[in-house]
């Protein structure tokens, strides 16, 4: 059988050519086409400054942050198959994941450690961008978007903390949301809160928790913020962030 002839037959077929827009010969033209004609690759420019490859320059922290976001999306989606965001079931579901679900413990571990790692990598990304002065014109607005993403990352992690419904998550979220009581004007213990008629049953903390205590409603709200609302918001801001990197002239470089 003539392999080359078969290969030619396949790669020139209508089906193949409708999917693959170009051949795979390694030459400068296909190197460009591989980036330009692929949805995922075209986030990149065709060429970058050489030092954009140096880890000592970029620390790769932005890329690692994005990759961890993808890991968290995948492991999080898998975890959602086994989890009910109700008081009666949540804690038992975690035990079920740990002891019964095949690779459930590994799945949960990966989700938790990737989440912690993402908080760290996003801080370090900010650190690098500051140290190379990469927020300077024309990239000011992208720094602002980055600060929003950093805040959203911590909120994502915070809303996930409660979902295990154990003592650790419950008290961490209790301590965290108790701060909201002290919000000026909008919290019942905050400055001038009582002047606006704030009580534990109508203030901003009540709105966050869906109650005056961290209980069933808070669990459901945390779940919806964690699994739907915040990831969608983050996805929108990541898109803006990446798009602006390109529009603002690619990786920052000395002029």
């Amino acid at each position: 059988m003539d392999v080359d002839a078969l290969k030619k037959e396949v790669t020139t077929s209508q089906l193949w050519r409708s999917v693959m827009r170009h051949d795979l010969e390694d030459n400068p033209r296909t190197r460009v086409l591989k980036v330009m004609s692929n949805l995922f690759m075209h986030l990149h420019p065709v060429r970058i400054p050489r030092f954009g490859l140096y880890l000592k320059h970029t620390w790769c922290m932005g890329g690692i942050t994005f990759f961890l976001f993808l890991v968290l999306t995948v492991t999080g989606t898998l975890l959602m198959f086994y989890y009910h965001p109700v008081k009666e079931a949540a804690y038992a579901d975690i035990k079920y994941l740990e002891f019964d679900v095949p690779f459930g413990m590994l799945l949960r571990n990966m989700h938790r450690w990737a989440a912690h790692a993402m908080v760290i990598s996003v801080w370090l990304h900010m650190y690098r961008v500051f140290m190379t002065g990469s927020y300077k014109p024309p990239r000011e607005f992208n720094w602002v978007v980055g600060v929003l993403l950093l805040t959203l990352t911590m909120l994502l992690s915070f809303t996930g903390y409660l979902l295990t419904d154990d003592q650790l998550g419950f008290w961490a979220v209790t301590v965290g949301t108790n701060m909201a009581r002290a919000t000026p004007l909008l919290g019942h213990e905050g400055p001038f809160g009582d002047k606006l008629g704030m009580t534990p049953y109508n203030d901003i903390r009540f709105a966050m928790l869906g109650g005056s205590q961290v209980a069933g409603n808070a669990l459901l709200r945390a779940y919806i913020w964690h699994c739907i609302a915040l990831p969608l918001i983050v996805a929108v801001f990541i898109s803006i962030h990446f798009w602006r990197v390109r529009k603002d002239g690619g990786i920052s470089a000395p002029q």
């Binding site: 413990m105 571990n109 915070f158 295990t164 419904d165 003592q167 008290w171």
Partner: peptide, 27 residues
């Protein structure tokens, strides 16, 4: 993830306050 397991304490209990009670580490 193989070496270290994510922590899971006892079921949430509003009547048992751990001492110290700490927010998530980044806060």
């Amino acid at each position: 993830s193989i070496a270290l397991d994510a922590p899971l304490e006892e079921l949430a209990n509003p009547n048992v306050t751990p001492n110290p009670s700490k927010a998530p580490w980044y806060f």
